[in-house]
Design a protein around this nucleic acid. Structure first.
Lengths: 109, 109
DNA sequence: ACAATATACAACCATTTGGTTGTATGTTTG
DNA sequence: CAAACATACAACCAAATGGTTGTATATTGT
């Protein structure tokens, strides 16, 4: 429940809350793509796609690497896993609830 | 890649992108709480908390049950798991990339 | 050197978000 | 029945979001 880890969670879930960004993330997880190549896939301006890429980058979901005049974006699977582990923690909270209910039911009385 | 499933993903990730909502979700996953009980935990108006609960409810992350004049909120762990499985699909995309790289490296040449 | 390409970013705009206060409605309790 | 309690929701506001166009900068290729 760190303050910065909540900031990080905010950024990660926010980045994932837009379908265009999720689609971009799928593409860059499957392989490197330049920003221009990504932009060609969507019915919006280059600048809009570039901003989506920047949101994903700030959240740590992708990294960029320069190659000549291109900027090649690549998805970071570790960041995806870190989101999954946040959800696992939520499931653990729920399991605790079930365990307490079980304890009540099996209690002698 | 259904249209309504993308809407659902938007709603789920958006609901999770706010720290107050994630905290509320933790509480209601651990057990039933009335909206008033939840509101007492946060330094904001009752109406603000009630709206956060409504966002979580619309996303399907919690359900409410009437008990007299109270509305008892309970977290839905299945919705949490459905988000986790979306992330698993993203990991699968990444695994496909790795598999292709491996195939290239082990290729005869 | 120049034109074309790839990217970044500022300024702007409409809509959404996260908060507020106030009001209405249903439920319990004295 | 009246007072208190629990909830819902409308109206409002400032800030953030997701889009646009335009401009600046760096890297190619001829």
């Amino acid at each position: 429940m760190d303050e910065t880890s909540e900031d990080r969670a905010d950024a990660l879930f926010h980045a994932l809350s837009d379908r265009t960004r999720r689609d971009i993330l799928r593409r860059v997880l499957s392989g490197e793509h330049s920003v221009t190549a990504l932009a060609a896939s969507y019915d919006m301006s280059f600048a809009a796609v570039q901003k989506h890429v920047a949101v994903l980058e700030r959240a740590g979901l992708l990294t960029k690497r320069r190659n000549g005049r291109e900027q090649l974006a690549s998805g970071d699977v570790e960041a995806v896993r870190s989101v999954a582990s946040m959800l696992d923690e939520l499931e653990d909270v729920w399991r605790g609830r079930v365990a307490r209910i079980d304890a009540l039911l099996t209690e002698e009385n």
